[in-house]
């Protein structure tokens, strides 16, 4: 596919990646790759696309994932589901907290990437990063509580113990919100994996770089490979394959924009659970449980009570 011409004329100039450092040394640039099954491959298609700043400057080339990459991501997410979902909530909480710790160490890089992508001040970008880090901490605390809060013991009319517990639904395809490339991404991803699901994320097409950096954080946070898989590339290419994929259990359309209705129809074929938020989302608001419940299945177990 012919990519935009911006690549040629754009000057790399993000704060995160200056061509030269103060001493005049030539900087080592980062290659922004996909995150699949715990590894960082380029797209199997060999394609990339240029990513520009809010001002139109070229920032980097991001991998343009293909449908096969999407398929591989689903395979990796499915393989990781059994292990991840059967970990204790306490263990998942420790790992999510570790993600927050690792993000702190990369604060400068995230801040620079967001400032460039969104054209906002460094201070504002920094507050977004802080909020994203705090969101991991928030969900790290939910991992061993949501079952108590969402579950129930049900008083049935008979000599039966009857209890309902939420369980992760499986593999969730997440279309990350394009407008909030880090805080929005974390806000949709963390609740999915906090409860034991695994995720295939399509990062903000416009601003994918923070997502790739987040992947690098995840890879160093004791998160098992495959629990989160991050695709960068063209949403209209990737999303329909994920929406129709029969081994994907649920779909978060938060970032799907005008593709949402069509994707929802694709998802109907295998009766996926679909989250379709409406209106503008205030990413700074207390998220509560509403981002977790759409990807939980309530299982009710009966057992007789007798001697």
């Amino acid at each position: 596919m012919a990519e935009s011409g911006k690549r040629a004329k754009g000057a790399r100039g993000s704060a995160a990646e200056r061509s030269e450092d103060a001493a005049g040394r030539l900087a080592v640039r980062k290659t922004y790759k996909l995150y699949l099954g715990g590894a960082f491959p380029r797209s199997e298609s060999g394609r990339s696309y240029p990513v520009t700043s809010a001002k139109g400057d070229h920032l980097a080339n991001a991998a343009a994932a293909s449908r096969k990459d999407a398929r591989d991501a689903v395979v990796a997410a499915r393989a990781a589901f059994g292990g991840w979902s059967s970990r204790t909530g306490y263990n998942r909480g420790q790992i999510l907290y570790r993600v927050a710790e690792m993000m702190e160490g990369r604060r400068a890089q995230f801040t620079a990437e967001i400032a460039a992508a969104d054209g906002i001040s460094r201070t504002r970008a920094e507050s977004m990063v802080s909020a994203a880090i705090d969101r991991w901490v928030y969900y790290a605390g939910w991992t061993d509580k949501f079952i108590q809060v969402i579950g129930a013991t049900n008083p049935v009319s008979g000599p039966y113990f009857n209890s309902s517990s939420p369980e992760p639904t499986g593999v969730v395809a997440v279309i990350a919100p394009p407008e909030a490339p880090l805080l929005g991404l974390v806000s949709v991803l963390a609740p999915v994996i906090a409860t034991g699901n695994t995720a295939v994320v399509v990062a903000s097409e416009r601003a994918p770089l923070p997502a790739v950096t987040l992947a690098e954080v995840l890879a160093t946070s004791d998160l098992p490979g495959g629990v989160v898989n991050i695709l960068t590339g063209r949403l209209h290419e990737l999303a329909p394959h994920l929406a129709a994929h029969a081994d994907v259990n649920a779909l978060d359309l938060t970032g799907a924009g005008e593709l949402a209705a069509g994707l929802e129809e694709d998802a109907a074929q295998t009766l996926k659970r679909v989250l379709r938020p409406s209106g503008d989302i205030d990413w700074a608001a207390d998220p509560g449980i509403s981002w977790m419940t759409p990807f939980l299945e309530v299982k009710t177990v009966w057992h007789p009570i007798g001697v």
Binding site: A152, V156, S157, Y160, T169, K299, V301, W302, H303
Partner: peptide
């Protein structure tokens, strides 16, 4: 969505009922 252990086909208004996967979504009851 419903696991009956040492019993089967028990229903109760207080007990949520509904499926995983292609058995549907949402719960009824409880």
């Amino acid at each position: 969505g419903v696991v009956w252990s040492n019993t089967f086909n028990k229903l109760d208004p207080a007990s949520p009922f509904g499926g995983y996967k292609e058995s549907g979504y949402g719960r009824e009851g409880g």
